[in-house]
Design a protein around this nucleic acid. Structure first.
Lengths: 257, 257
DNA sequence: CGAACTTTTGAGGAGCCTCAACCCCAGTGG
DNA sequence: CCACTGGGGTTGAGGCTCCTCAAAAGTTCG
């Protein structure tokens, strides 16, 4: 793939390749290869080492770990511009799978590490990315360990809405509304949130019934008011079905369901 | 601190400083400063940026996040040779606190980043460390999302036992026994495992009553048989109080409580 | 020894899971 | 054309795990 093909690439602007000069980019893109994975397809098994590293171009990749008796936990979702694969070698012990149709821009591992050694900016960018992933993982640990089922579902919708903010809303009738597609089934959401399918479904229904979200079909979500969703994501009790009664002191309650 | 003082340092052998040549080490150690923190003391608040980066020399540091209503989650424990602080700047949103008395080897942030730029090995070592921390965080996410309370407690004891293996056991009467000190109170264990104090206590008692662990005082744990502890860490049902009845086919059951 | 704190233990309840039925939709084939 | 099938989703009833509340027992330290 010629480097000029990178001009419109999301990884060139937001991802790893933003650390590269034009000729560094050319070196890397010379060995780049696009690969496609259909929804549900495994990209790499745990205990194996990916023979290549990659940028996500489109779609969503899920990283999972399965216990011996079949219990499964999704530990990360990777979106366009995210980096796939463990740079310094060694299997990570997690399975990467396409949640929806995925397109990757892949680099042979040996060639990539060559570039990494030659261009200091790449290693720094990689470190930055890994630190961000670590912070995200820690934030998710708080969710898994300390949040209620209702908060978990709201938090999941919130991070998706924040990812896709700006890409939607127009014409839906709300000023600051956000609309996006769920990249996961209810069962996968459960595996991400540490819940069961039924609990996820019940809480999706509850969020819909109190007006925090609207659903179009199974997978399209509209968030009319991001503040209400944000409140629901860190508030154990979600009493108010509609607007809460105004408080005597005129202050707005922290939790507004 | 003269670089010669690093000779016996754990970070020099297992930690970040193992990536340094003697004169690189000298450059860094010239600006190193030891700091001590008493148990319970805060090292850095969330939303603040540590003015320095550090290696843990002794003790245990806990990284925590607290929700607005007070719910708390410990997201990482840092042991000797571990690296404290976010290298590329910016507050991480987590609070670092000394779980027990802690000694750090600290470097002014600006000076450290100078060395980081000059010595490529440092950045690589840092990336390696961050990748390892990310894997550990993901493994913990599996625990938080999918393991039972009994498995959680067993898993926690297991990682401690693995950390301290070799440092104990002699004279306790068991061949492969491991003995170690708990660096956390029951309440802190609860915050690490996503449980309550009472549930931690009950499961510690249960592990003791079925012989998987022995306790000397509140904080000293002896693991007579690491395999039984390992089995208990990933097995939802822990029926067998002693040895399970031998199976007809002579195979050993996966779960042996 | 007594006060403050941590840990253990118990009783009861809530939240989430388990099991099961049913709905919707898309594909398939008689 | 429609029964059949399978996957995904929703809803309900009941139960289990873990949380909450409470009190006693053990530990630490003045």
């Amino acid at each position: 793939m010629p480097a000029s093909g990178c001009d419109g690439c999301i990884a060139r602007h937001k991802g790893l390749c933003s650390a590269l000069s034009p000729d560094e980019l050319a070196r890397l893109s010379a060995v780049a290869r696009r690969r496609r994975f259909a929804a549900g397809q495994t990209i790499v098994d745990d205990q194996q080492e990916l023979p290549y590293l990659a940028n996500v171009l489109s779609g969503v990749v899920k990283l999972t770990k399965t216990l011996v008796d079949g219990r499964e936990q999704i530990v990360e979702l990777q979106f366009p511009a995210d980096f796939v694969g463990r740079p310094l070698g060694g299997p990570s012990g997690f399975r990467a799978e396409a949640a929806i149709n995925v397109e990757l821009c892949t680099f042979a591992r040996s060639r990539f590490e060559q570039v990494m050694r030659a261009v200091p900016g790449v290693e720094r960018r990689l470190l930055q990315h890994t630190l961000d992933a670590l912070d995200a993982a820690r934030a998710w640990m708080v969710l898994l360990g300390r949040k209620t089922a209702a908060e978990k579902v709201a938090s999941f919708l919130l991070i998706l809405a924040q990812r896709f903010r700006g890409a939607a809303g127009a014409g839906s009738g709300w000023v600051n509304a956000v609309r996006f597609e769920l990249p996961l089934t209810r069962g996968e959401m459960a595996d991400f949130l540490g819940l069961t399918i039924e609990t996820v479904s019940r809480n999706m229904t509850r969020l819909r019934s109190i007006g925090v979200i609207r659903l179009q079909g199974m997978r399209t979500v509209i968030v009319p008011d991001m503040e209400r969703l944000t409140a629901a994501s860190e508030c154990p009790l979600e009493h108010a079905a509609q607007e809460p009664a105004p408080r005597p002191d005129g202050m707005r309650a922290v939790c507004v369901g």
